[in-house]
Simulated scan of single mutants.
Amino acid sequence: MDRVELTDDVVVLRAPEPADVDRITELCQDPDVQEWTVVPSPYTRADAAGFVEHVVDAGWATGAELTWAVRDAATDRLDGMIGLSLAPGASAEIGYWLGPDARGRGVMTRAVRLVVDHALRPDRLGLDRLSWSAVVGNTASLRVAERAGFRVEGTVRGFVLQRGSRRDGWVGTLLAGDPRP
Rank of each mutant, 00 (worst) to 15 (best):
E17F: 01
G80T: 07
S85C: 11
S131N: 12
G106A: 06
V112F: 05
T109F: 03
V55A: 15
R147I: 11
D32M: 06
R129V: 14
V156I: 15
D168E: 09
G83I: 04
D8A: 06
W68G: 03
T67V: 15
R166F: 12
L6S: 06
F51C: 09
D123K: 01
G63R: 00
Q34L: 14
D178G: 09
D22L: 06
A145M: 02
Y43N: 05
F150Y: 07
E146N: 03
T67S: 10
M108D: 09
R147S: 13
G63C: 09
W68F: 06
R121Q: 13
I24E: 05
I94A: 12
M81L: 15
A73S: 12
P122E: 14
W36C: 03
R14C: 12
W97Q: 07
F51E: 11
L125P: 02
D2A: 14
G154E: 11
T75W: 07
G158N: 08
A49S: 12
L6N: 01
P16E: 12
R103S: 08
D76G: 05
V171S: 06
R110I: 12
L66S: 06
S41W: 05
A111R: 00
D8N: 10
C28T: 10
G149P: 02
L125T: 11
R14Q: 15
D30H: 05
L98S: 03
R103I: 10
V10K: 07
E35A: 13
G164M: 10
G137L: 02
G80R: 00
G80A: 04
E17P: 00
D128P: 00
G104S: 07
G59R: 00
V152I: 15
D76Q: 10
T25N: 12
V136F: 01
G149C: 09
V144S: 04
A49H: 04
T44R: 10
V39A: 03
V11T: 13
